[in-house]
Amino acid sequence: MRVLLVEDEPELASALRAVLARHDMVVDHAVDLVEADQIASACAHDVLVLDRQLPDGDGLTLIPKLRARGNRVPVLVLTVRSEIADRVAGLDHGADDYLAKPFAFEELLARLRALLRRPANMQSEVVRAGRLSFDLANREACVGGTVLELTRRETLVLEALLRRVGRMVPRSMLMEAVFALGDEVQPNALDTQVSRLRRKLVDAQGGVLINGVRGVGYLLRETP
């Protein structure tokens, strides 16, 4: 899952990025409306977490701009302004949910999961290939009922490949699924993650194999 976080408070932004990353989310971070608009135009995101009080204006003004460009990303608004009128304004601007500060991280995560379960974003909660199953809600891969011990980035690679099982996934798409903007990424970073994941799947006898075409991408296929 790729999240665009728009929050200008450094401490809160750092804490949110850490929490989201621990739950296998790739986080792009913007501190104002201009930067958020640029990132949203450059990358596709599964959800937008948007603060209202930003240095260059009200975060709500970003939503109509995105919608006008056909960007239907679900939006969760964070704000200290929790009066009913403020909530109504947020929803009327196109926000999908509204969470008042201060809030518990557990509630934020639950609301994000709820947004992604809505009809426009509905997807099967379990993806299967060979003897491998992947629970999209719990971010958990299993083979024959045994949970695979995967790192966060290995999990992200596996999810991206499983969503297009049997088809080539371009390197650019995998890079976008695994690394956030601003991450320091070595040239062979993606290949390293894929290699480690491939070895774990083979050792677990998952009934799948990851094949690659140098410079093009990777595909996950079921083995006979």
Rank of each mutant, 00 (worst) to 15 (best):
R111S: 09
N121L: 12
L50W: 05
L20H: 08
T61H: 07
R22C: 07
M122I: 07
A129G: 05
R22V: 03
Q123I: 11
M122P: 00
Q123G: 09
L76K: 08
R118Q: 13
V126K: 04
L78R: 02
L66W: 14
L20M: 08
A36Q: 12
H29Y: 02
D97V: 00
D86V: 05
A100H: 10
V73C: 02
L5S: 01
V73I: 04
L109K: 05
M25E: 14
N121Y: 15
R87G: 14
E125M: 12
T79V: 05
V73Q: 00
A36D: 06
E9D: 15
V6C: 05
D28Y: 01
D28P: 02
R128I: 00
R131E: 11
R117S: 11
V75I: 01
A120K: 15
R72N: 14
V27W: 00
D37G: 08
H29G: 02
R113F: 08
D58S: 08
D86Y: 04
L115P: 06
E106D: 12
R69Q: 08
K101H: 09
Y98S: 08
D92Y: 05
H23Q: 13
R128Y: 01
P102W: 05
V127N: 06
V75Q: 07
D56I: 10
L115I: 03
D58I: 03
E125S: 15
V34L: 12
E107N: 11
V49P: 04
P74M: 02
I39Y: 11
R17P: 00
P74R: 00
V47L: 08
R113I: 09
V47F: 00
G70Y: 12
